[in-house]
Computed example of a mutant assay.
Amino acid sequence: MIKLSNNYELPNLGLGTFLMNDDAETKRVILEAIEIGYRHFDTAQMYFNEHVIGDALLASGLKRSEFFITTKLNRHHSKAKTRELIYKSFADLKVDYIDLLLIHWPNHDDKINIQTWEVFEEFYEKGLVKAIGLSNFTRYQMEQLIPHVKIKPHVNQVEMHPGLSQVNLIKYLNDHGIQLMGYGPLMRGNLFNEPYFSVLDKIAKKYKASIAQIAIAWGLAKNVIMIPKSVNKERLGENFNASKIILKEEDIKLIDKLNTGRRMYADPANNVYGNFIE
């Protein structure tokens, strides 16, 4: 478990659900993940699967206190529309509170980010959301937000993997008591290409593990919440068991050296997903 700056705790390993668009498959994956031991599920309005995840969690028989949901607001809107969309997530997920709510992508107008954040603060202060945060915000975008809000973000979810280690961002977040959550740990399969493969394969053999497990274990070793995604039951179990791998410092440093600043997903400073829609 990871304790956030407000003392709320989340599992440090969760299941990402990006591109899980088939309802039947998504429900199957969620139920299989629960069987394996997953209790933290990351979704977003933009994934169009909140309703299926809600159905699966109900069908699982788990008590609400036994699972954790992270979801994200789709784009930016007026305050009234933002409230309406957040309540829609409650309805689709079939819950009476959300563990972690994130702004999915930053708007390029800093004032709009602040306006959206003010609505998040309302939900947090009412206890309807247990923690609030950002997704895909750069240090510079955060610096335009933090001085102007009442409640500092608890989390920033960003792309993180051996090719994009986010060393400087992690230091900045640590200085501000903000938890990093990393997505895309498997680099969309590019872990199996050079210059990454040779190093990771050697380390994986040392621990009798897979390359994917090593990438996940590396993030966990850095105190990052990791949310790998898979729809394959065997790999779901493999990813989950990565939490049992304790990497030696020498191996962590070898993986750190693989950083090339390479993105597999959109650049937050040039994204087209954080636009304002009334």
Rank of each mutant, 00 (worst) to 15 (best):
F240H: 06
L62I: 02
M187N: 00
H176P: 05
S135Q: 06
N136L: 03
W218M: 09
F41I: 05
Y38P: 03
K27S: 12
D110K: 15
I178S: 13
S165Q: 10
M226Y: 04
G237S: 00
P228M: 10
N74Y: 15
H104F: 03
M1E: 14
H154W: 02
I132C: 10
H51I: 08
Q166M: 02
P195E: 10
K63D: 11
A212W: 01
I178T: 15
Y140E: 15
N232F: 04
D110A: 15
D96H: 13
I246Q: 08
N190G: 04
K152F: 08
G182V: 09
K152M: 13
N136F: 07
T138A: 07
L128K: 12
A242D: 07
I211K: 07
I225P: 07
I214W: 02
K171N: 14
K229W: 01
N270M: 05
S65M: 13
S65F: 08
G37N: 04
H108E: 08
G16Y: 03
I114A: 04
I277A: 05
F123R: 05
P185M: 06
L247S: 03
N107D: 07
Y183G: 02
R235I: 01
I246G: 04
Y183V: 05
V149G: 05
A33R: 07
M187T: 02
I203N: 06
K205C: 12
K111W: 00
I277H: 11
P228K: 03
A221Y: 12
K94M: 04
K171I: 05
M264W: 05
L15V: 03
S165A: 15
D23K: 15
H40S: 11
D175Y: 01
L220C: 09
F192D: 03
V155T: 11
N6P: 10
N174D: 14
D201M: 02
K81V: 14
S60C: 06
Y47P: 04
G163N: 03
I245H: 02
A212P: 09
L101V: 00
L254C: 09
L15P: 03
L15C: 00
L101K: 04
E35K: 15
G237D: 02
I252K: 09
F48Q: 14
L145W: 05
Q115H: 05
Y8F: 13
I30T: 10
E84W: 11
V224G: 00
D55V: 05
K63L: 13
R262E: 14
P147H: 08
A56F: 08
I69V: 15
L85N: 12
L191I: 02
L10H: 10
F137W: 00
H77R: 15
Y97F: 14
R235N: 12
P195N: 08
Q141D: 06
E234S: 12
I36R: 01
L145Q: 00
S65A: 15
M160F: 11
R262H: 14
T43D: 02
A91Y: 12
E32I: 01
A212G: 09
P147S: 11
I216P: 08
E32R: 09
I211F: 10
Q166R: 14
E250Q: 06
H148C: 04
S198G: 13
E125R: 14
L258W: 05
D109Q: 13
S78N: 11
R262T: 13
